[in-house]
């Protein structure tokens, strides 16, 4: 009986900590939605005019009809609650331009972007881990070179990297197709383009994490107990280095989602990017907001997962979370 008590209590405090993080995440999503609503209200000019396009000369009756249909007549708080209610039911509104539900439009374009981002995340993590682990703790020409490449990679704009890769591999060497999303080969260049700058950052942070961990006194203590250099790295340092890397995951995903817009434009890939760009150009705000809200939710979910993973990884955070 006595043993059960503390364990239960610990589980409960952890659950409470997790709950608090979820509540925080919900608050952020609510904030993003409020921001989106504010943006809709801020749109200068008459939304009906935007909706009808510059060329139309619709009668006032038609305009009123549209107004009522889109709910532009209601008072502000009512519209706000109405908007939130729609969001909760998964309704992101209708596109001004295409007269289709935003959810449908996003649904059609979601898959290629998800493919691209997933491929890039995998690639970035693999490249980063290899380049960091191979060069950690060594002063060599290889390390200098790798660090230089990382620096160049993380400073290179996606769109330019894409164009250079296109020029070399598609138009000169004809290895990969220049556009489209038909097969896996068409995914290679966009994924590389999207992954490399992020990989540069991740590699630097991971290397720094391992090296910081290796400078800690507990490493000396572990070696004094007879652990080998490699053993210390595997048993001690890696877990310490994982924390900063995890922290960056949420950021990296956001960065990849944003970068995808550019990369999809460069490679003429279908996806959320081209959808967003068209919507921005024609100021089709509901579509832009739909994409932004979706990304924000994805980022917040990831941040929360990362937070919980950190809790699992670091007992000190668990103690702090119980406060």
């Amino acid at each position: 009986m006595r043993a059960v008590g503390p364990v239960r209590r610990r589980e409960r405090t952890l659950l409470r900590a997790a709950g608090r993080r979820l509540a925080g995440a919900a608050a952020v999503v609510l904030g993003a939605a409020t921001l989106a609503f504010a943006a809709l209200q801020l749109l200068p000019g008459d939304p009906v005019a935007v909706l009808l396009g510059p060329a139309t000369s619709a009668s006032p009756q038609v305009r009123e009809q549209i107004r009522a249909d889109f709910g532009f007549d209601e008072p502000l708080p009512v519209r706000y609650l109405h908007y939130l209610g729609q969001l909760v039911t998964g309704d992101l509104g209708r596109s001004y331009q295409r007269q289709q539900p935003v959810t449908t439009l996003i649904g059609e374009q979601l898959w290629p972007t998800v493919q691209l981002v997933a491929a890039s995340v995998t690639l970035a993590v693999v490249v980063a881990v290899v380049s960091a682990v191979v060069t950690t703790g060594r002063r060599s020409a290889l390390r200098t070179l790798v660090e230089l490449v990382e620096l160049v990679a993380l400073s290179t704009p996606h769109f330019w990297l894409g164009i250079v890769l296109l020029t070399v591999f598609s138009f000169r060497l004809h290895v990969f197709p220049a556009a489209g999303a038909q097969d896996l080969a068409a995914l290679v260049l966009p994924a590389v383009t999207l992954a490399l700058p992020v990989a540069g950052v991740l590699a630097q942070v991971l290397r720094e994490g391992i090296e910081t961990a290796l400078e800690q006194p507990f490493v000396v203590a572990a070696r004094a107990r007879g652990r080998s250099r490699l053993g210390v790295r595997l048993r001690h340092a890696v877990r310490h280095a994982a924390a900063p890397l995890l922290t960056l995951t949420g950021w990296a995903t956001g960065s990849l989602l944003g970068g995808a817009v550019l990369v999809e434009t460069v490679f003429g890939r279908p996806g959320l990017g081209s959808l967003t760009l068209q919507a921005v150009t024609s100021r089709d705000l509901p579509v832009v907001l739909g994409v932004v809200l979706l990304s924000a939710t994805a980022v917040v979910v990831l941040f929360t997962l990362v937070d919980l993973a950190q809790l699992a990884l670091d007992p000190r955070l668990r103690t702090a979370a119980a406060l």
């Binding site: 919507a279 100021r283 932004v292 917040v300």
Partner: peptide, 20 residues
């Protein structure tokens, strides 16, 4: 926190969509 949750490029695009 809210602003940080929005990917910067998308946030910039959103502002452009509002302002032109």
């Amino acid at each position: 926190d809210v602003l940080l949750a929005l990917p910067p490029v998308l946030l910039a695009l959103l502002v452009v969509a509002v302002l032109g």
